[in-house]
């Protein structure tokens, strides 16, 4: 069994009389240590997929497994534990807590889980050793996103979920962030899923999943992985 397995997942949002079929019979697998890029246009169902996989939302039917555990069977509390221990999340807008320093923003996550990585080390790892005591407002967007990644990594999660991690960043910074994610995956063997509408990013992925109108359009195993530095968009 693969590390992540989606099998026939459906998600229907109901608001009033309108039913939105956000995911239709989505099935795919992601192996451990892979970098997977989920790509699609706005409204294709990427975020729904991410929400469900990240334990932020429940599915209507189908099954999801992570590392052999059925995530789709989790209840609220188990989902919280799942998010807490197994998932690291990187947001488009970083979502750092403005009132906490860089280090503290990492600590707030690391203190939650069972065997976290030392926050200082992680921060040093993302190159922010000097700025650990700075508040988010004192950091640039890229630095903030590094903090966010450090926050996710410090939890030592099974899976790193990244939602448009470069969306709010300029080209160079975005590249640096992607590099950081790639390095993280390569060095620690962490499974990373990046969600983006930018097809260019697929080049760096081990596995590419295209989403279209709520369905899995195609799953491609990338034979020719390009280092981030060489990706252009």
């Amino acid at each position: 069994m693969a590390f992540i397995e989606f099998s026939h997942v459906n998600k229907i949002y109901q608001s009033g009389d309108v039913k939105i079929h956000a995911l239709k019979d989505a099935s795919f697998e992601v192996g451990q240590g892979e970098i997977c890029v989920i790509v699609g246009q706005s409204g294709a169902g990427k975020t729904t997929l991410l929400n469900i996989l990240g334990g932020m939302d429940t599915l209507t039917d189908g099954r999801i497994f992570l590392d052999g555990v059925e995530v789709s069977a989790f209840r609220k509390k188990q989902l919280a534990n799942y998010r807490r221990n197994d998932i690291g999340f990187v947001f488009q807008f970083y979502n750092l807590i403005p009132n906490l320093t860089a280090l503290e923003n990492v600590e707030i996550a690391s203190q939650l889980c069972k065997d976290p990585l030392p926050p200082v080390e992680v921060l040093s790892g993302v190159g922010l050793h000097e700025r650990m005591q700075n508040f988010p407002a004192q950091l640039s967007g890229g630095e903030q996103q590094r903090v966010a990644i450090a926050r996710a990594l410090a939890k030592n999660p099974k899976l790193l979920l990244c939602d448009e991690p470069t969306g709010a960043l300029d080209y160079q910074t975005g590249k640096a962030i992607l590099k950081l994610l790639q390095d993280a995956s390569r060095h620690s063997g962490m499974t990373v899923i990046i969600i983006t509408h930018n097809s260019a990013l697929t080049a760096m992925a081990d596995r590419i999943i295209r989403v279209k109108s709520g369905t899995i359009d195609e799953v491609i195993l990338n034979e020719k992985i390009v280092p981030v530095e060489e990706i252009e968009w």
Partner: peptide, 14 residues
């Protein structure tokens, strides 16, 4: 709201 949502995503129990 955003901060709280983030915390929840980070795995804060209610």
């Amino acid at each position: 709201v955003r901060e709280i949502a983030t915390l929840k995503v980070l795995g804060f129990y209610p």
